[in-house]
Each structure stands twice: as C-alpha cells, then as structure tokens.
Nucleic acid binder design. Structure first.
Lengths: 192, 192
DNA sequence: GCAAAAACGGAACGTTGTTCCGTATCGTTT
DNA sequence: AAACGATACGGAACAACGTTCCGTTTTTGC
C-alpha cells in the first residue's frame, strides 16, 4: 500500500516540525472545540498557514485519522486480548464494544463525523472500518461459535450501529449511549 | 402557544400560493436530493426568490417541519391505537417503533439532520421530541407495567437511539437499521 | 384609481472547506 | 560561503452554503 508514502516524514526540518505542531494543535483543538472545528482554527493554533495544513494532510479526514490513529489501533489490538482473557466470547465482545464506545464518546463530534455523508470524511469512515471490522468479526464469530448470540447481525452493521448510537452523546447530558449500547448487545444474546 | 400565528395562512393571495408551492417544491426536492438539499434548490424548484422562503419559513427547520408535520402527527396518533389493538404492550411498542423507523428511513437524510448540532435544526429536533416522546412514554410505561421490559431506559433515550440507528441508512445498502432496531427492542425485553 | 401594506427577488454577508501561486526557506553542490 | 534548485510556506481567492437586507413589485382596502 501507500502507507509509507503517506506517513513518510517530510524531507525538510521545518516541514517535520510543522507537521508535529499541527498534530498537537489539532489534538488540542479537537478537545476544546470538537472534531468539527474549522480548519482555520487549527491552523491558527499551530501558528501555521492554511496551505501548510493541506500540504501535510490532503483532507480534514487525513488529519483526524493521524490524530486518532494510535487510539484506533490500540482498540483494534485489544480485541484478541479480550477474547483470550474473558470468560465468554460474549463478555469479550461486550468489553470490546465498551472500549470502542468510550473512545468515541470522549471525542466531541467524532461519531457524528464518522457517518457524515458530507463527502470528505469517506477516508475517515473507511479507516475505522478497515481497522475495526475484522476485529469485531472475530469476536462475533467466537460468540456465535459458542452459541451465545443470534446470527444475522454482521460486524459492519454492528460497528455502524454502535457508532451511530454514540452520535450527539456530548452536548446532551440526558442521552447516555452506553446504556443503549448495552441494551443492543444484550439483544444479541440468545435466550436460555 | 404560538401555533396559530406560525401556521396562520398569509393575508395576501400570492403569499398563500407561494407558501403552497414552496411546500410542494420542498417535498419534491427532499425526495430527489434529500433533506439536506440547498435552500436555493428549493427556491428554484418553486420558482421563488430566497427572501420568499425565509419569510414563510424563518429557518430550514421550519420548512422541514411543515413538510413532515402530518406524517409525524400520524405516527404520534398511531401509538394509542396500536396499544389498543396489539396483544401485548411490547408488541405495540415494537410496531410503533417500526412505524417510526419506516418514516425516517424513507426520508433521505432526515435522521441525520435530526441529531445534527449544526445549530438551526434545534426546532426540528424539538418538534419531533415534543410530538413523539409522550407517545413513546405511554407505550414504554404500558410494557413496563405488564412486566415485559426492563426499566431504566427512558422514552427520550429510546427515541434518540432509534433515530440515531437510522442515520445513513440510505446511501449504504449494506446497512439495515431495521435489523439493529429490532435487536435493540429485543434487548429491552425481560428474559423469561 | 390610489396609496399603504404586504410580499417579492436576489444581491450581499459571514462561514465553511479547499485550491493556487508568488514568496521564503532549506539543503546540497560547487 | 555563495548560489541554486527543490521544498515548503502563507494567505488571498474560490465555491457552496445558510441567512439577512432592502429596493422594487404586487395586492388589497378604500
């Protein structure tokens, strides 16, 4: 793939420094103003021009991905570990989904942007899916093989649903996605 | 309330005609281009200037509400009827939610716009909630009273969750919110 | 008919994401 | 160390959007 070329550090020192500053600035702005903060705000925070942002990160999605890549990867890697350390596959699934929800809920607006069809976030959507759906599939398959859950719900659908449930969790203290996600996962379980 | 003043037909004949045209045009554009279609497109479709739209409907939300008001009201009114005609309260809840999902899913982008914090859709959000949460509460209470569902999930939360699950259902044939909503409602049911 | 009231159209504003290009800086080569 | 090409920079400029504003047109009541 082109991972290398995309992630490659710039040749020049100032460019490398700016890219770092940009990542830090973006992370800071995302925390205070949410993921949908204007690009100009991030540029200002980093003390950098607009052109610089777009050279390093061809689109907003790429910047968001770069900021959260480590956490998404960590979540993906936690899947197999949970499967190994949990009493049942369903418990592992439950814990892993909870990890995912915690991640989404603590990033203002990220869940919303994930499903947004505002073209330009496709890359972001795709990255999350590429990274997490395989893990979810593994957990789901394990639970299904153990006869713990109903079949018919795919990993993509589940991830998508959980992501959707997390939309708007910030900015509304009366809405707690964790409870609903809990109900959803409970609904997956077979009776008996 | 100010329902009367807001819904009052304009005094002048041309204004009344334009308001009608606008509603028809908006409905047509929403079907073809989705609820997020630019205001200018609706104005063009109605053969009307921008000012005219904003005089009749102070904000996009008001236009959307006006277009869907009847259907939302119909959904609200179906609640008590279903409760009377269904075998169990849980069945009534299930059918009513299904009605709501059908409504949302057939309006491109409506679910998305409902939760959008893009300020300006607050009115829309509020209208849906005002109209539907009481009905949902009634169904939920009935099911709880019959001991059919777990307590702890409020009507607001449930409506919000179901709405969220419907986001992005169009423009993605691989995502079927109905199945997930089914799982969610199943998760509400008490075992045994 | 005529004036006042009501409503109209669309230019203009503010905010966004993104592109473009003249200018500045860096790193290498003589 | 000077100079030159490659690299990167800043921010003006563009397009799309929601919304506001106001000079002009249409309707209505007399």
């Amino acid at each position: 793939m082109n991972d290398d070329s995309e992630r490659a550090a710039p040749r020049r020192k100032d460019a490398r420094r700016n890219k770092e500053n940009l990542l830090d600035a973006a992370a800071a702005v995302f925390v205070t103003k949410g993921v949908e903060a204007p690009v100009r705000d991030i540029a200002a925070e980093a003390g950098v021009g607009l052109g610089t942002i777009y050279r390093h990160f061809p689109t907003r999605s790429d910047l968001i991905i770069a900021v959260y890549r480590h956490q998404v990867d960590a979540c993906a890697e936690a899947g197999p570990a949970l499967l190994a350390s949990s009493a049942t596959a369903h418990a592992a699934l439950e814990r892993w989904i909870s990890l995912f929800v915690d991640f989404l809920v603590t990033k203002h607006g990220l869940a919303g942007v994930l499903q947004s069809d505002n073209s330009g976030f496709d890359t972001l959507h795709a990255y999350f899916l590429d990274r997490l759906v395989p893990v979810c599939t593994q957990l789901l398959d394990a639970a299904a093989a153990a006869g713990e859950i109903r079949s018919g719900v795919g990993a993509y659908e589940l991830m998508r649903g959980v992501g959707n449930l997390c939309i708007g969790a910030d900015s509304d203290p009366d809405y707690d996605p964790r409870r609903l996600v809990g109900v959803l996962i409970a609904g997956l379980r077979l009776r008996g």
